[in-house]
Design a protein around this nucleic acid. Structure first.
Lengths: 341, 341
DNA sequence: TAAGTTCAGTTAAACGTTTAACTAATATCA
DNA sequence: TGATATTAGTTAAACGTTTAACTGAACTTA
């Protein structure tokens, strides 16, 4: 059968406790014995049984990762990248990540993820907007929960957030420095905090530059920030106001929609209109022109979340931290110096 | 602390063995006792400890799922959908899926996935093309392995495959029925079996319709089947042959590249050229015109793989099955009846 | 030198299940 | 009727670890 700690102990001529102490280096063992044990472990290709370990330590060694179907299957690998960041980091710490998806219209009748019901995780990471009734039901299980890129209504949870305000400022500043004055903002649902914060950054940047805010340059009534809604929002923007020289959209998907609208209506990018997105999802490298955008470090969001939850697990006291991950301006081809017509 | 089988046994007034028999219904227990135990379980909200179970049963209850980074982070949610299918199915069978990625240039110096080293999975599902040295090293661990959408060089593994030949026939037949004669095939790497099979279907369909095969209508030298290579392949196709009225590309990504090329060069789709893709990844719903394609049932590929591996695990004898999952023609706007210029 | 301290290692209990082997009661049948 | 089979349940060992409590030797120190 499989090699166990007993086999190692026997072959190395020590007790199983000693082997255990070596593998965990939890007690001082003479270098001589230690090396002998280590060598034996290697030669037998011994790997401790996870279940036996978990059983006695009362830990599971698993972290649950929850995503809605919507987010999971998004065209752009945004949330999958975040997951990957978490998985990467977990490798160093002997944790496994259990990924599951829930329906985005999760309701009272839906079952909680199995790993919650069976208590097979030590903590939970949730990325993106999630139905609040799930959060409420989750709280009964008193597991540590961390949110990525979402601010739940109830306080007290540690949060890993994108520095959206900073991103909004970065994007808008870029356009301002290029000489633009009539800068539009196109967002999805204003109820979503990221959109609100990005808009906030936009406003702050304008104010700092003494450019008056015009409400008819702000379109934030689309239900979902996808390409189609980007297209429609652009249409509505230009219906109100022909005098736009630059557009900041709250994400790349909408930006691509806007791009389509502009092309369909004879505007050249960036000659007639400059366009900047947000996320940098590399969704469309064939885009012409290539999109200037704000890069969100997705992998890093995932790794940060993992580090934080492990910390929480070790120190037991629930620090309700809020970590803002910085973003970066990526200048490509869709923005240019303002030239009056 | 946590509720254990002992608590249930005590409260229900039976031995722990009885409780175990009830939870597994592995032995006949009187309905009376059974109901009493069940009720107690519910009232205490008891859930068996997975690690204790795994320890004695020598199963882990986990299946490993391996993807290369390339596939994982593909723009189109192709492989993530397959994973989701597996995860869905696993829910019914009390299995968990451990998803991990490896680098696409995985080599001898890279570590095997942790779940292999630590023996924390009962079997492995691999989706998409994977470096063969990984397969070789994996075979040492004598775990059941199943491949999805990839035929490894070494035989004997159960395979879940897309019915590519049938798909090739379906696509080409569609174009033939529309009256096209000069039908081009654009594929990526011909070394890839899916491309070969799709091309095969293409050839079969032409032959059946008595349309002579022209080699200068077949472009299969792109290293990777993405948009950029679709664009380039189209360029090369039209350099050799202006007389093309329909194009069948081996996947949607290349089809989108081809679409860009056609637009850039003044061809109207489908008036001048009909275009059909493969995969139906819904990557670009803003596409104009919407792409006619062959739909691959991604979720189903995942569920089939899971069912097969569980079967393998239960019956122990390694049936080297090959399951061909059928595809479906989805007619949208990019194909039309042939009209001579 | 005697008492105490440190060091290196061992022993054995515990974690929460499953399951083979057993028991005791009841049913079946020639 | 007595032997046998069936049913419903129990007992106890086993799975592979961790770790508290212990042991014995070697080293300090007054």
């Amino acid at each position: 059968m499989s090699i166990t700690i007993k086999d190692v102990a026997k072959k190395a001529g020590v007790s199983i406790a000693t082997v255990s102490f070596v593998t965990n280096n939890s007690k001082h063992i003479s270098t001589e014995t230690k090396n002998r044990v280590l060598k034996t472990i290697k030669s037998l290709n011994y790997h401790p049984s996870k279940s036996a370990r978990d059983l006695v330590s009362k830990k599971t060694g698993f972290i649950g990762f929850i995503l809605t179907d919507d987010h999971f299957l998004r065209t752009e690998p945004f949330y999958t990248r975040i997951f990957l960041g978490t998985e990467f980091e977990a490798r160093n710490d002997d944790y496994y990540i259990l990924l599951t998806s829930i329906r985005s219209d999760f309701n009272e009748n839906d079952q909680l993820p199995r790993f919650v019901l069976n208590k097979s995780v030590d903590g939970i990471i949730i990325a993106g907007k999630i139905p609040i009734n799930l959060i409420e039901r989750l709280s009964d299980y008193n597991l540590p929960i961390i949110f990525i890129d979402f601010i739940p209504p109830s306080n007290g949870y540690p949060l890993i957030l994108i520095d959206n305000i900073q991103g909004g400022i970065l994007a808008t500043d870029h356009l301002i420095h290029l000489g633009h004055k009539n800068i539009a903002f196109i967002g999805g649902d204003i109820e979503h905090t990221s959109v609100r914060d990005r808009l906030n950054g936009y406003k702050q940047a304008l104010e700092k530059a003494n450019i008056p805010l015009k409400n008819n340059l702000i379109i934030v009534d689309a239900p979902y920030p996808d390409r189609q809604n980007g297209y429609n929002s652009a249409k509505r923007l230009f219906a109100k106001n022909k005098n736009v020289s630059a557009i900041f959209t709250c994400n790349d998907a909408m930006a691509i929609g806007v791009m389509h609208y502009l092309k369909d209506n004879g505007y050249d990018i960036p000659r007639d209109v400059s366009l900047i997105g947000f996320d940098d999802v590399e969704a469309d490298l064939m885009l012409n022109p290539l999109l200037t955008t704000i890069r969100v470090p997705k992998i890093e969001l995932g790794t940060e979340a993992f580090r934080l939850i492990v910390n929480l697990l070790k120190n037991k006291k629930s620090i309700s931290k809020k970590i803002l991950v910085p973003v970066e301006l990526i200048v490509r081809e869709s923005t240019a110096i303002y030239k009056p017509k």
